[in-house]
Amino acid sequence: MLPVSVFAVKHRNYSGPFQAPAAGLSSNWLKSWQSIGKVKLKILVTFSLLLCALLITQLVFAANLSTDGQKLAIVESEITKAQSEKANLKAEIARQSSLLTLSAKAKELGFTSSPKIIAP
């Protein structure tokens, strides 16, 4: 603990509650007080910069996420379209290759039932 004499003010040249330290105080204490202020400022500035950086990073990620979400929606939509197309093609193939269709086409082309079939 510092001695009381350190804090003794021998001569006041000013009035008011917030007074500059007396010229009689040691310059070391003043320097340390001033350096504390600088450190605090530095911490504050650093913290603020960090916060800004985090905010910006979060914004960038959020923006990417939203666009990724849109890309995902587009891809899913294309998948659904492709699946729908596949189902439609499958249905069309089934229609065209049905025995009903083939039988009708065979008749159109002049095919008839064979009167004799040679079995092994």
């Binding site: 729908s84 189902a87 439609n88 499958k90 249905a91 089934a94 049905s98």
Partner: peptide, 9 residues
Amino acid sequence: GFPLVTNQE
């Protein structure tokens, strides 16, 4: 394997 019943859009 021919579909006797399938689904249509």
